[in-house]
């Protein structure tokens, strides 16, 4: 399951989708909105996605993860729209026979998602706003 949604993420559904009877481990990453950035209070974040490509890129990341680790199940849900501090922005769940693979695969997926998937966020402060810019190394990851 790959989902990009404006509604609050159903964490249990992501976990259930990734679960497998053959799994000895199910690893879940939950990304949340932090209340500070650059020493300033964040009032809220505005997330935008180029949805069709975001889904396609997440699928490529999952394919790569499934190639590297023996995944039994997986699910990803990413929220867009306006999110306040404390709210959940992304949930990634992967299951595997053993825990190390599930930890490693989950870390790979969130790290690569942040580098490659066309989703953007703007931080809204009391005195202004700023687009968050990530590492400019997308091409390197692909080559």
């Amino acid at each position: 399951m790959i989902k990009i949604t404006e509604k609050p993420i159903d964490i249990q559904k992501v976990i259930d989708t990734a679960s497998s009877l053959g799994a000895g481990a199910l690893n879940v990453f939950i990304g949340t909105v932090r209340n500070t950035a650059h020493g300033k209070n964040v009032l809220w974040l505005e997330y935008e996605a180029y949805e069709a490509m975001a889904v396609a890129e997440i699928r490529k990341i999952i394919d790569e993860a499934a190639h590297r680790w023996p995944l039994l199940g997986w699910a990803i849900s990413h929220r867009i729209g306006t999110l306040k501090p404390g709210e959940v922005s992304v949930v990634i769940a992967v299951s595997a026979p053993h825990r190390k693979d599930s930890f490693d695969a989950c870390e790979f997926i969130i790290d690569t998602l942040k580098e490659k998937v066309p989703i953007w966020k703007k931080e809204i402060f009391e005195d202004g706003e700023e687009w968050v810019s990530a590492q400019p190394n997308v091409a390197k990851v692909y080559n």
Binding site: H78, S89, V90, P118, W120, S133, Q135
Partner: peptide, 10 residues
Amino acid sequence: IALIPPVAGG
């Protein structure tokens, strides 16, 4: 064709 400025998901 789409322009992709620095991404920041997660």
